[in-house]
């Protein structure tokens, strides 16, 4: 790690002020990505702003068909929340399978989506559920939020405060673990909503998380695993690495999607 100064503001407003005052400041939430990155000397922030004491970033509320989760809510809190389990069990299940228990005890929703790791789990749920990312400046539709590998629509000094997930009729998430890292080699989140079916795919895409619209159309017509059989998943723009080529990932997208749909039954 390079040397840096550490700050722990008591509110989001103070955090924002620190970011504004220090050009090379970076936010740390749970630190599950930030600290390994610092350890490898891949980042060199002059200031580290810890959001831990920002009480206004925590908590889970369910009302009017929406689950709102504070950005600093830990994965384990989401996984074990009775409210989330009741409203969107697939989301609780997703959170309960991120990393390992010790990671879930520290890692946060806001940290995960702000980082937008192409193999992270939460972004697929955000896309499939049509979530809204609430920041200190504005509200951003998930579709507009994830802009590329480790890239988001967040601007300098903008901090995620919460994510609003509309409650779907049915939803399920199926993840195929990369054998070493246990990140998603492919993760597929399927949500059946009043407005149709949405399918979010993580792990597979060269540009990060994406919606599989062909599957959405097929599943909107017939919400059954067989409906996916006829969908051609192109290997174009899919990742290739030692854990699987594009054809393999294309196959996994179909298999995971079918299993997710089957889980919705």
């Amino acid at each position: 790690m390079y040397a840096f100064e550490y700050h722990r503001p008591g509110s989001v407003a103070d955090a924002g002020a620190l970011l504004k005052a220090n050009e090379d400041a970076k936010i740390i939430a749970g630190g599950m990505t930030m600290i390994p990155t610092l350890k490898q000397r891949l980042a060199m922030p002059g200031e580290l702003v810890d959001l831990r004491d920002c009480a206004d970033l925590k908590g889970i509320t369910v009302s009017g068909g929406t689950v709102t989760i504070g950005a600093m809510t830990k994965h384990d809190t989401v996984a074990s929340s009775a409210e989330v389990k009741g409203a969107i069990p697939a989301l609780a299940g997703l959170a309960g399978n991120i990393g390992d228990p010790a990671v879930r005890n520290r890692g946060t929703l806001g940290g995960s989506i702000a980082n937008n790791d192409p193999a992270a789990d939460y972004p697929s749920a955000c896309l499939a559920l049509g979530a809204t990312i609430v920041t200190t400046n504005r509200e951003i539709a998930a579709e507009d939020f994830f802009t590329g590998l480790f890239e988001t629509a967040l601007e300098e000094g903008e901090i995620i405060t919460a994510v609003r997930f509309p409650v779907p009729e049915k939803a399920a998430y199926k993840k195929f673990d990369q054998p070493a890292s246990r990140y998603a080699l492919v993760g597929v989140f399927v949500a059946k909503t009043a407005g149709g079916v949405r399918v979010g795919v993580t792990g597979a895409g060269q540009d990060g998380v994406f919606r599989q619209t062909d599957m959405e159309a097929a599943l909107s017509a017939n919400f059954a695993p067989e409906a996916i059989d006829g969908v051609m998943v192109s290997p174009d723009r899919l990742n290739v690495d030692i854990h699987g080529d594009a054809a393999y990932r294309a196959n996994l997208i179909k298999v995971m999607a079918k299993r997710a749909v089957a889980d919705c039954a």
Binding site: P179, A180, S181, D241, I242, H243
Partner: peptide, 19 residues
């Protein structure tokens, strides 16, 4: 343990070497 053609270790951590 996988090396690429230039001799870099592709499986250089537990992120890619499957323990």
């Amino acid at each position: 343990c996988v090396y690429d053609e230039s001799g870099q270790i592709v499986t250089g951590s537990y992120m890619d070497y499957a323990m």
